[in-house]
Design a protein around this nucleic acid. Structure first.
Length: 114
RNA sequence: UAGGUACACAGGUGAUAGCUUGAAUUACAAUUCAAGAGGAAAGUCCGGGCUGCUGUAGGACACGGUUCCAUCUAACUGAUGGCCAUGGUAACAUGAGGGACAGUGCAACAGAGAGUAAACCGCCUUGUCAAAGAGGUGAGGGUGAAACGGCGGGGUAAGAGCCCACCAGUCUCAUAGGUAACUAUGAGAGCUAUGUAAACCCAACCGUGCAGCAAGAAACAGAUGGUUAGCGUCCUACAUUGCUAUUGUUUCGCUAGAGGCUCAGAGUAAUCUGGGCAGUAGAUUAAUUAUCACUUUAUCCAGAACCCGGCUUAUGUGUACCUAACUU
RNA sequence: GGCUCCAUCAUCUAAUGGUUAGGAUUUCAGAUUUUCAUUCUGGUCAUAGGGGUUCAAAUCCCCUUGGAGUCA
């Protein structure tokens, strides 16, 4: 779990970023450790909405964390995350990960891609 | 149809995956069981508890707050019931609702005059051929948010509470009702100088002065200082010798409390008294959920962060009673 | 989480409770100029929202909304 402000700033400055309509991802590849931080600013809404957004992100991360590379992840909630259907959010989640190249690719998948 | 008042609820069950705390088991990684946000948890507008500022007690000044009456409460700028005023056809609602003969200030513009009153036009007397001038007059005109009681009669040169009747208002007294605020009736007095205290202020009452759980305490780690004391200012008395500031981590503070539900009694009510019942929310990137199915009125505003009592604001659905108008 | 403070034209700011809320910059129109700039003249644009006190509120009081600062 990411906690310190300095760690967040490091990821924002050096990491790769990808954006979709409901989610933004900042990713810094790092050998040996896997840390995650969740962010929902006051721009998103009141306390209920911010908590809900973080919960949704956590639920998705739990589902997919086995398939991901090591590194520092920072998930940023955007305005439509609260209202969109869960399936749409899931699609955005996958799309963002793909853009950053954070998904672990097995040898079989490599062949199909090539 | 329109409006008013009071109250209730804020979901439940199942499947899959998962979070926080506690307990148990096994033995250091899991498994099982139990519990897990609100009516406003919000705004931080009041009142307390609790903690610290060497301590305790007292006085003066200053500062801040409150303001019809009674009751309730740990306390309150709170609640309940009443009184008065204002708004509304009504049900009902709202009210910082003491004092303007203790004093000071202010009332722009307009207007003759805005607080010791005041003579622009007009009216009357005088004066004159006619004017000018001198004097009286607040009844009439006009100005303004506001012009010093209203109306009628007497009176007068013209007028004026100058005098009288009625009405309005002020003060005093008496009687009746009420715990009281106050209300009703009667008598008398003088003949009556506006508003503003949410301007300064005066009176009465209240206050623990300041800071707030990021208060503060302990343990460990190390180092660097400050001083004879202070918490609105000043003063007095007594006690004490060491007190105190800064940094990091962890633990405590942290949840059983002026608590909740329910029954009976007292009270118009707020509330109080007595009996019974059930029961660990306690996080710190901050848990209490995600995806579905069924059910149903099941949706809104919205997420505890030391804890309680209020106030204010946001907001869905339903129920009961009341008022007005129309129709049958 | 606690405490403290602020809000006036598009921007920076004035204003003792009392005239139509003033000034500068910007912007718009016109004049000057062969044209542009400068200059001159005139105009547009505001008291955060809702109540109350007062004859009268940007100003005094209350509530709400938005914004800022500070405390480990």
């Amino acid at each position: 779990m990411l906690k310190l402000n300095s760690e967040f700033q490091r990821v924002y400055k050096r990491g790769k970023s990808a954006h979709s309509t409901s989610i933004a991802l900042f990713y810094l590849p790092l050998e040996g450790e896997k840390k995650v931080g969740y962010t929902a600013s006051k721009k998103v809404g009141n306390a209920v909405i911010r908590n809900h957004c973080k919960r949704r992100l956590r639920a998705l991360m739990r589902e997919y964390s086995d398939q991901l590379c090591d590194g520092l992840y920072v998930w940023v909630a955007k305005l439509p995350l609260h209202n969109n259907e869960f399936s749409d959010v899931q699609r955005d989640f996958k799309y963002v990960l793909k853009r950053v190249n954070a998904i672990l690719v097995s040898n079989d998948d490599k062949k199909t891609l090539s």
